[in-house]
Design a protein around this nucleic acid. Structure first.
Lengths: 233, 233
DNA sequence: TTAACCTCTATGTCTAAACTTATTTTGACG
DNA sequence: CGTCAAAATAAGTTTAGACATAGAGGTTAA
């Protein structure tokens, strides 16, 4: 077995991946059971189990009790997206971070937002529009609604002085999130805020977070044209 | 402890998440060590370890030997994207799948592709353009380059008859992938293939896969305007 | 003061063994 | 034959115990 990493389990992961990549074990094949692999790799069954569970979570293996472990036929591979805090993303790129709150007020939520937040239409939430800059150039525009009922303490905050993203991350951790990506042509406001021309293609990230008390916040983030999000395998 | 799931480890995960969400344990706090939690939860240390490692991978906890486990200060939460096989995605939506190969030929790769695939510029690869349809309406347009050196057997295949995506998934599993999302205004070709107007905002997915032999394939997928990709927490 | 070194501790990893549980197989019975 | 129940099997989970190792903190020597 090719030892590629420090841990035994990781070595098993690597070796099984190699066998699949090299087609020693083909799509649909049943692979030896945990006990046999444990003997072959000189490891305990628990260690083999850990390795195979990881590969199953990755989508490379299908595991079923009694039926054994099979190489996935149509592997739907998963990619992990890391959604960083804007400020950190900008500073990590070696730019100077700044932001500007364009609007902060209490408003009744429109139908689309109500649906996303699973709240009744017309409820009064905090509505916030912010632009984040790197070295003075617009990086992303945020359109955010915050539900004070699920984020205690938010009412007294002046988001002109405190970064909403960071305040929320620190003061209202979420239990569940819904995230969606899409592309939209910049509308007049997007264009103005991002200092680009109307109609240019923007990557849009839409995220709603929930805790026991319900929806905390929903945000539509419009990235500057040309922005790329990287996902890691 | 609120038992939310079958497994003990999962129950610990849920309870720790709750304590963080309810701010019993706050950002930056050091939480009790594994041995203490094991006693509190009436579990073995290995079980607590499994739970905490999961939360650390999620980004909620920071763990360091000797220093203990802390609640992450600026949690960079991760989202998992499932990139399905087109056919399955379309059929799952209850539509009838079809596809059309617009072009298949051997061409020298341009500089941008060469860089992505870590190959010398001008190398001859298979170039493929395909449109995938749901109920006859264009769903996504693929622009793909395939490296026969890393995908043995690909040379004889007629991709007018075989779906490239599915052939590759089955015959050339990858070890490493690079995935990126962005938005682009539809160019003339995109507009024609997707039957939309030039300039409309398209969600673009760019993926390159590798095995021991090098880059297998790189593909630029342009989705129909309005398409949304969902990520799960 | 600083650098080099040591010690201690909390996490990381593995093991053997047991028990649980989903699922397939088998086989008895109608 | 088909049906239902029992047996068998492979993965799922947990446990106690052991050892490895990073790294914080303290100690000593230059």
């Amino acid at each position: 077995m090719t030892e590629k990493s420090s841990s035994k389990a990781q070595a098993i992961v690597t070796e099984v991946r190699r066998r699949i990549a090299d087609r020693e074990w083909r799509q649909g094949d049943r692979i030896p059971d945990e006990a046999e692999l444990a003997v072959e790799f000189g490891a305990a069954r628990a260690t083999v189990n850990k390795a195979l569970q990881l590969l199953a979570k990755e989508g490379l293996l299908d595991r079923k009790r009694r039926a054994g472990t099979h190489v996935t036929v149509n592997p739907t591979r998963k990619a992990t997206l890391t959604i960083p805090i804007v400020r950190e993303q900008i500073e990590q790129a070696g730019m100077e971070y700044s932001h500007r709150v364009v609007a902060q007020k209490k408003s009744p939520i429109p139908a689309a937002i109500a649906e996303r937040m699973e709240l009744p239409e017309g409820q009064m939430l905090i509505h916030l529009r912010t632009v984040h800059y790197g070295d003075g150039k617009p990086f992303q525009a945020e359109d955010r609604w915050i539900n004070p009922a699920a984020a205690p303490g938010v009412d007294g905050i002046d988001f002109h002085r405190v970064n909403a993203n960071e305040w929320l991350v620190r003061n209202a951790p979420w239990l569940r999130a819904e995230i969606a990506f899409s592309a939209e042509n910049a509308n007049a406001r997007d264009a103005r805020l991002l200092e680009t021309r109307q109609g240019s293609a923007l990557l849009i990230l839409q995220r709603t977070t929930f805790n026991d008390l319900g929806a905390i916040t929903t945000v539509r983030v419009a990235f500057h044209p040309g922005h790329t999000m990287i996902a890691t395998h």
